[in-house]
Design a protein around this nucleic acid. Sequence first.
DNA 1: TGCTACTTGCTTGTCGTCAGCAAGTAAGTT
DNA 2: AACTTACTTGCTGACGACAAGCAAGTAGCA
Lengths: 219, 219
Amino acid sequence: MSSSPSGPASDAQPLTQAERTALSDKAMIEAAIELILERGTDKTTLAAIGEKAGYSRGLATYRFGSKAGLFDAVCKSISRRWLEYLKEAVDGKTGIEAMCAALDAFLRFVSDMPREARVLHILYCGAASPLSEYRATSVNIHSKQQEDVARWVQEGIANGTIRADVDPRTVAAQYIAYIGGMNYLWIINPGSIDFRRANEEMKRQLRLALAPPEGRTPQ
Amino acid sequence: MSSSPSGPASDAQPLTQAERTALSDKAMIEAAIELILERGTDKTTLAAIGEKAGYSRGLATYRFGSKAGLFDAVCKSISRRWLEYLKEAVDGKTGIEAMCAALDAFLRFVSDMPREARVLHILYCGAASPLSEYRATSVNIHSKQQEDVARWVQEGIANGTIRADVDPRTVAAQYIAYIGGMNYLWIINPGSIDFRRANEEMKRQLRLALAPPEGRTPQ
DNA sequence: TGCTACTTGCTTGTCGTCAGCAAGTAAGTT
DNA sequence: AACTTACTTGCTGACGACAAGCAAGTAGCA
């Protein structure tokens, strides 16, 4: 705002059109994250986002079409980063091990990028409202994650590390619900949750609840 | 709107002031619930609430002070009804039995009053936003519920129905998180959740995870 | 009981702000 | 130089919030 009168990158050689949009997109998404953290979604205006990003008040609307469109983009941007954490942690694991690894990955994500984790959840919450224009994004991400977890459970059943009488889809829903719910409690009242301890406890309970009755059956 | 030109109760003897406000309050909260279900919080206007309730566009603002004030009132109104369900179901129970009874109560609440359950969750979601003016309400309710659950766990430990090495506060947070998370998944994508089945599964897992290692220790 | 002063419930007029749009300007591309 | 794309500016309708006014209920006093 003070150093660069014509935008956030006025120096050096000219940028290509693609580079320009990528730059302004990124700046606006970053600005949106900060403003949502500060004021929440309601009190964040498209004009403020554009200007905080170093552009005009109109750019956010022009680029993303609407407030919901912009939030959708922020949602997708942060989700992508979270999925990288998840992918790396789970890698080839299955069954209970995959579920525990995912819990750890989530804890790491929340520790490394608390701002993004917070904003992502705030946006997911917005998706609970009827007629929400980015509900589809939330549904897709949650469905995909549920499917992933259900597959881990199924594989765990197949190789004998998970008792055979649980329903993979139900367990998956419970698992995703637990993570989302903890995140909510942490967001509205951070002091009341010992996230690390809850995670350790949860891993223990997963083993207790999902392991086959008497030691491993021979695989 | 069609039958009563001067409000929702134009017939019979005149009402006292207190009765009049009670009536209009109730009408507006009911109207708000319907509109939130239809359009979500963002697209519900104070004017629409007042008019749907059979009054003027200005009454909702006048009575509740602001949009947030109105949502806070709706939140409290529905919470009160939910707590009645909870109280009746749990009654004098403790430990795992109380936790299972509360799960059943929640399922019953969602079945009996799906509209209210939905709206309550939508409002709780709104409380996740920074600067939310009814966040305090959500925090209070969730804290109180967490304390209740922690007490059940503690009592369960005391009478030997719950293993002694769990942390009541942590278990309580997980339990509340689970319920809230399931509610969210159900709201954004009702088809993907078999609520009843998940409940049965959850009750089984609570018993597995919280019961003492080898049968009951003598109380 | 009837009259008057006062309080409270509710409505209408108005203002500032914001999302969204359309027309215009500047920067990059061929 | 002609064209496309990135971005800005001017504008409008809608909404939240407020304030002034009207009407219905209440209380004091004969």
